[in-house]
Computed example of a mutant assay.
Amino acid sequence: MSPSYLLAVLPPPELAERIQNFRSTHNLKDAAAVPHITVKARSGLSPEALDWQDALRGVVGQHSPFMLEIGGPRLFRNGTALYLEARSPEAVRLHLALLDALKPAKFFGYEGAALKLHLSLALARRGVELPELLTAAQAEFADLEREPLVFTAHTLTPMRKPGPGGFYAPLEEWSLLGRSPAGATPQ
């Protein structure tokens, strides 16, 4: 099977370290090994032709940095993942702009305006009991339930998974628009 790509926001280093420690303590090995919040999933990001990169890099370069809020642990209703809740209307707007830039537009059913942002802690796999892990995650990340972590995303990170059994690894960073062009007056 060929590699797959996605575009994500990486959490602040302190939170990423906490997540990696949690995963290590519970011996979790899956595609979410590098903590990330997917803003554009792999649909339409063909590994055979990487022409989508220029179009999406252009969209990212025209979008302002945005705030994200990371809350407590949850399980998806369908049982596919344990995650930290993530919220950001601006990230969803960027997601929609990225979908619009793909020609032809191809996307998964969970993409679009109802995108559920999340930061995966563990994916459902044989031998992994997500309901039990939820209890451990609720203890470990109780502070985020009480007071969510808020941070500003200044970059979007393309990530690549080499194939089945692999994990998504960062390739580079694409800067979000950070300031007005020289001589421009803010509106």
Rank of each mutant, 00 (worst) to 15 (best):
V92C: 02
R74W: 07
W52L: 06
E111T: 03
V60Q: 03
L130R: 05
G72Y: 07
S64P: 11
H95E: 07
I37M: 10
S64G: 13
L94Q: 04
H95Q: 05
P47C: 07
E129L: 11
S46G: 07
S64F: 13
A136Q: 14
L130E: 11
S43V: 06
E132Y: 08
S24T: 13
A114S: 14
A137N: 06
K106H: 09
R42A: 15
L75I: 03
L99H: 03
L68R: 04
M67T: 15
A137E: 05
H63E: 12
G71R: 07
V92N: 01
L130I: 11
L117G: 04
L68W: 02
L98M: 15
G79D: 07
D100Q: 15
L123V: 09
A139V: 13
V128D: 09
E48T: 12
S64W: 13
L99G: 03
Q62T: 10
S46Q: 05
A33Y: 08
K40N: 05
L134D: 06
F76K: 01
A81L: 11
A55Y: 06
L68H: 04
W52N: 08
R77C: 05
F107E: 11
V128C: 08
V39M: 03
L75V: 00
D100K: 13
R42W: 09
L50Q: 15
A137I: 05
E69C: 09
L130Y: 08
R126K: 15
L98I: 12
L28T: 02
A91T: 00
I70T: 07
I37N: 02
F66A: 08
A105Q: 14
P131D: 12
M67Q: 10
F107W: 10
P35A: 07
Y110R: 12
D100P: 02
I37A: 03
D30R: 04
A137V: 06
P73F: 08
G61I: 00
F22W: 09
H36R: 08
N78M: 06
L121Y: 00
G112D: 06
Q62K: 15
N27W: 11
M67P: 03
Q53P: 05
A41C: 04
L123D: 07
E48N: 15
H36E: 01
V128Y: 05
K106T: 13
F66P: 03
L115D: 00
P131W: 09
L68E: 06
P47R: 06
L117F: 03
G109N: 12
R42S: 15
V128N: 05
K103L: 11
N78L: 08
L84D: 04
F76N: 00
H36W: 01
D100L: 09
K40D: 07
R87D: 13
A49Y: 11
A136Y: 04
N78F: 07
R57C: 12
D30F: 10
R42V: 03
Q138Y: 06
L119N: 02
R125T: 05
E132W: 08
K40T: 02
G71F: 05
M67C: 09
A124C: 11
L121K: 00
D30W: 08
L94T: 05
K29N: 14
A139N: 12
F108Q: 12
L133Y: 01
G112N: 04
K106C: 08
A91P: 00
V60E: 00
R77M: 10
R23A: 12
L134I: 14
K40E: 06
P65E: 13
L119K: 02
D54P: 01
G71Q: 10
G72C: 10
L56N: 01
L119A: 04
R87W: 08
